[in-house]
Design a protein around this nucleic acid. Structure first.
Lengths: 144, 144
DNA sequence: GTACGTGCAAAGAATTTGCAGATAA
DNA sequence: TTATCTGCAAATTCTTTGCACGTAC
């Protein structure tokens, strides 16, 4: 989708900085932190400040154009994909993967919320990712 | 369960400070922050330092005697209940509630993890809690 | 020209680190 | 004794705030 349209759909005026940050989020599904976004964009927008990255990400999340992930204890991450899906954090490499929620197992609808009104759902899994598991096996073989 | 036994079961030597913090966690299912624990215990242990609270909670979570919650963006919270259950954060009052996971809807087992090895599961819901919803209704009635 | 957006510098808050003294087996 | 635990102070990191300048309509 057109980035400018997407911003406008969420009542966000498309400035150069906002377009760049939104574009970065949409093209990199790595769930970047503020620092990663800043470091990636600073070369092409030399005047960019971290404050603006903070401001913009706050705005994006408030307007529903992106969501905040708190899966990583160290840093807040951001995700432009606001459709229902879960996240997996690898404790070894630190990467965050998207995970599809099984359509049969819509946890929220089946869970008794005791009368609470649910507005946001975050499913986080943590462990060792496939890639790190494979590297581990290779290392074991090489060492034997 | 006996707090000292529980600590020992997780290979943690039971000092006065550790017993106090573990006890507090087990008796208060409010998912407290470091600061809340420190403030609550400081009067009875005047020499207690925040560093020790940090050290102890880190130790407890590393040894599996407690778990870290990152549901609240502002502060890290801790939970002595390490059995599978979900959490609900009220955006209005900030309270965190325990929510049972419906046995029929074991999300993790039904979700295709793409080969990743899952070690931890965190289900977070956010919205307005029952109590705040009721207060809202009362206020509306009173104002009309 | 007026409202909004940006970015610097400073402040604030949460957490970690270094280290010396206290404690316990 | 000897290793471990504790807690002060300082450092570090992440994030927010205040404010002046720039920009766009």
């Amino acid at each position: 989708m057109d980035v400018i349209k997407r911003l406008q759909n969420h009542n966000i005026k498309p400035s150069v900085q906002r377009i760049a940050i939104m574009t970065y989020l949409m093209e990199h599904c790595t769930h970047p932190t503020v620092d990663e976004i800043y470091t990636a964009l600073a070369p092409s927008i030399p005047t960019l400040s971290k404050t603006t990255v903070y401001n913009t990400l706050k705005l994006l999340s408030e307007q529903g154009a992106a969501q905040i992930l708190t899966i990583d204890e160290r840093n807040t991450c951001y995700d432009a994909d606001t459709t229902p899906h879960a996240h997996f954090l690898c404790k070894r490499c630190g990467r965050i993967y998207d995970v599809d929620i099984n359509a049969d197992g819509k946890q929220a609808e089946e869970t008794d919320m005791n009368g609470h009104e649910v507005q946001e759902i975050h499913y986080y899994y943590k462990g060792i990712c496939k890639s790190c598991l494979e590297n581990e096996r290779l290392t074991e073989i090489t060492n034997n």
